[in-house]
Design a protein around this nucleic acid. Sequence first.
DNA 1: TCGCAAATTTAGTCGCGGCTAAATTTTTTA
DNA 2: TAAAAAATTTAGCCGCGACTAAATTTGCGA
Lengths: 233, 233
Amino acid sequence: MTSAAAQNYLKAIYTLQEQQAAVTTSALAQYLKVSAASATNMVKKLARARLLHHSPYHGVQLTGRGEKMALEVIRHHRLIELFLARTLAVPWDCVHAEAEKIEHVISEDLEDRIATFLGDPTLDPHGDPIPTKAGQVARPVYPSLLDVGAGQSAVVRRVSDQNPEHLRHFSKLGLVLDANVDVLEREPFEGPLRVRVASGAEHIVDETLAREIWVSPLTGQTRTGMARVKKSK
Amino acid sequence: MTSAAAQNYLKAIYTLQEQQAAVTTSALAQYLKVSAASATNMVKKLARARLLHHSPYHGVQLTGRGEKMALEVIRHHRLIELFLARTLAVPWDCVHAEAEKIEHVISEDLEDRIATFLGDPTLDPHGDPIPTKAGQVARPVYPSLLDVGAGQSAVVRRVSDQNPEHLRHFSKLGLVLDANVDVLEREPFEGPLRVRVASGAEHIVDETLAREIWVSPLTGQTRTGMARVKKSK
DNA sequence: TCGCAAATTTAGTCGCGGCTAAATTTTTTA
DNA sequence: TAAAAAATTTAGCCGCGACTAAATTTGCGA
Ligand SMILES: [Mn+2]
Ligand SMILES: [Mn+2]
Ligand SMILES: [Mn+2]
Ligand SMILES: [Mn+2]
């Protein structure tokens, strides 16, 4: 038990649980790009192994053991992402795919060595929190770039690692971790944003993309606000 | 095709081919710790994929494509071993088991990054040659420590990575890569060796273990010989 | 050269993790 | 509230890579 496939299901359920409490078969199937029947099949196996509770036709919920196991895999994933980024300068749009494979095959000993080598880090290259060995994980909640009002500034804190093309686009735009962004204007009806980045360049950011960037809004207005924040340091 | 299992068969056949030209089903099965029936089954699949020639009841031989593929996996394996040893100080008795898993899941891009990071190395932590990207591999042939006569000295060039306990023992004894060894005496009937290592300490090395260490013999006699060699540098 | 033992292949099975199609249950809509 | 739609589960299948047991082939010794 706890094959790579099972680990991926546990990870997916954990991730989906962060949004809504009851994770449905179809949500799971869609997320993992498998058929609903396949998801049901694995869910029954995980339930038998007491890694989740299955309320047939209604959804699943991880048990303590299941959540712990999910967090272990997530810890592997994020440590590996950071390790590859740090040691080999693997760009942030590539680390996810590599980590997705390696996370299932490293030993606990190697995990420990990587963690120590990196100085027991708390964030991966996308700003995702790294669970501790004991299974504790921070749950930073940031507004998305979309929630920042026109005329406001913010600092990029976390970026979705699900789409490599989007990540590549973000780094091209200068929208990297800890970067400052000024939201200049917002098209109505959930339209795209116009932003200014640290270099001074201005870019249009589509709604879908803006949803994949989470930020710490800064008080005060764009330039002025930023200047004030810098001074007050 | 070319699942992790298939890659392991190709690697095993390549390794066995270095000893004898025709690799039998039972040799393969024994090496991989699977039943003969399982080996036959995979052999037939690899033959269908034109990765080897199968002469039923007589043995197999890798095709050009099969050998190339084997060398690609071996390159992954040895690069990963060296990478783990260099970056994380993973001891040489642990790198093999980790590499055995990771070798099947890294991308070509990651392989290239690791190779470049390591400066395109030619030897792994056990002195095994690393095949090039193009599939060329050096075939260093060294005598084993057992072939060194009493009173002779040698330099450790290569050590079998198959048995972690043996490797741990070797490093405890100071029998590491590039170490000098003086063979002091040899018990008759293929008995154990008495050796002196760089530190001056003397150790008994069993025949089985001595077979797992390959060396460059030095001309001249132990101390005297070594001294002379050192002077002549 | 014949017969037997060893090696090898074939036949049939299993668990895993996918799939489609059909049955069932829940939810929505009329 | 009954019928239709949607979601979910069940049933049955497949390829993979193991296995055991049985059949076949090979090669060796008498
Ligand atoms: Mn990731
Ligand atoms: Mn990440
Ligand atoms: Mn190795
Ligand atoms: Mn090695």
